[in-house]
Design a protein around this nucleic acid. Structure first.
Length: 366
DNA sequence: AAGCCGTGGGG
DNA sequence: TCCCCAAGGCT
């Protein structure tokens, strides 16, 4: 472990730090839907939704989700498609499928009670080191570290930890620091306060150190090096992919949609048929061949796209060209995971944000 | 270990 | 416009 950090950890008056931090939290904590009580299920759902996602974004999704699936049992028995639909627009969709899978396990293996040991709760799908600690401390009052980006930022400054927080291995160092500092009598507030402090005061850029309740314990503030911490290497730029998308309507006025594979990007979500532009032929020809081979459909594809749209993911960018096509046959027996769906049905399935935008635009132009 | 996995907001 | 970010986990 980092020697300087170790020395700093011993210098901090831990009980004074705990008191200053927790009293600040009691006065300043935001009223959030998942803070109404300590129901482990409600805490659990909130922690999954909050992974890599802002509080303001999560709130409306969380409220809707809890209305639809208020208990472990209701979520366990819900069809996956309903759960994905409730998650539409929130991103990282495997979170939703893992959550339901884990909830079903709790329902079946633990009699519907969320387990309260690190070993058991960490074995649940989608529950990693952070989420395990968060649920154990917030719902059960168990003094376990819950180290997220906020905690690493706050403690890197308070203790002068120079390890690169973008590396997975760094988390352990911060967990050790939390194990030393955590308030055994109130781990829930201690952990939440560290995160709340990171969100409200100890922000990534321009932290409000003068307002900080623990600034007298903070090494970075004492030395005026808040802006140097935490150390975080930036990730690589995203790659571009050219995507050709096609809107096809049958004689009944239904639209052709396809369900994505059950693994990988946007798993199990529905979308309008699309392929990567191979640039080995005119776009309309590529799409025509694609509809024939992948869907068994004869169609005439417009030469020019009626819409363009870029969509940026965390690790790649789709540059989308959207075409329309007219069926040239009555035979519409579809292959694979494709289906004809009515306008009403398309409203009720989960689409990626990019395809939902295309759909809205299509309805507008019709 | 490092790449994959979404989205919308802010500087 | 572009980049970074926001209560991470999985493989």
């Amino acid at each position: 472990m980092n020697k300087n950090f170790d020395q700093q950890l011993l210098k901090v008056n831990k009980y004074s730090f705990q008191k200053d931090l927790i009293e600040w939290f009691e006065n300043e904590m935001r009223e959030l839907p998942w803070r109404q009580n300590q129901d482990p299920y409600r805490v659990w759902v909130s922690e999954i939704m909050l992974q890599q996602t802002r509080v303001d974004t999560v709130i409306p999704f969380y409220n809707r989700f809890m209305e639809l699936f208020p208990t472990i049992e209701t979520l366990a028995y819900a069809p996956e498609e309903k759960v994905l639909k409730a998650w539409e627009g929130l991103g990282y969709y495997s979170r939703a499928r893992n959550l339901q899978s884990a909830v079903r396990e709790v329902h079946e293996q633990y009699g519907g009670t969320v387990p309260n040991t690190p070993k058991e709760i960490s074995s649940l799908k989608g529950v990693g080191p952070y989420t395990a600690g968060a649920i154990l401390s917030i719902a059960y009052g168990i003094p376990e570290p819950a180290v997220d980006g906020n905690v690493m930022r706050v403690l890197s400054r308070v203790l002068g930890i120079w390890d690169d927080i973008s590396k997975a291995s760094s988390r352990k160092i911060f967990e050790e620091a939390v194990r030393h500092l955590i308030a055994e009598h109130n781990p829930s507030y201690f952990n939440q306060a560290l995160m709340e402090l990171g969100a409200l005061i100890c922000s990534p850029t321009s932290p409000s150190c003068l307002l900080c309740p623990v600034n007298e314990h903070c090494l970075a503030f004492a030395e005026g090096i808040q802006s140097e911490l935490p150390v975080k290497t930036r990730k690589k730029s995203t790659k571009m992919i050219d995507i050709l998308t096609v809107i096809v309507q049958n004689q009944e006025g239904e639209w052709l949609v396809n369900q994505r594979p059950s693994h990988g990007l946007l798993a199990n979500l529905w979308e309008f048929p699309n392929l990567e532009d191979q640039q080995n032929a005119p776009t309309s020809v590529q799409i025509q061949e694609f509809l024939k081979v992948d869907f068994g459909l004869e169609a005439i594809v417009q030469k020019e796209p009626w819409m363009k749209q870029d969509h940026v993911f965390s690790h790649l960018t789709w540059k989308m060209l959207v075409f329309t096509a007219d069926l040239n046959t009555q035979e519409t027996n579809l292959y694979q995971r494709a289906a004809w769906k009515t306008e009403q049905e398309i409203e009720e399935i989960a689409l990626p944000v990019s395809h939902r935008k295309i759909w809205r635009q299509h309805l507008l132009n019709k």
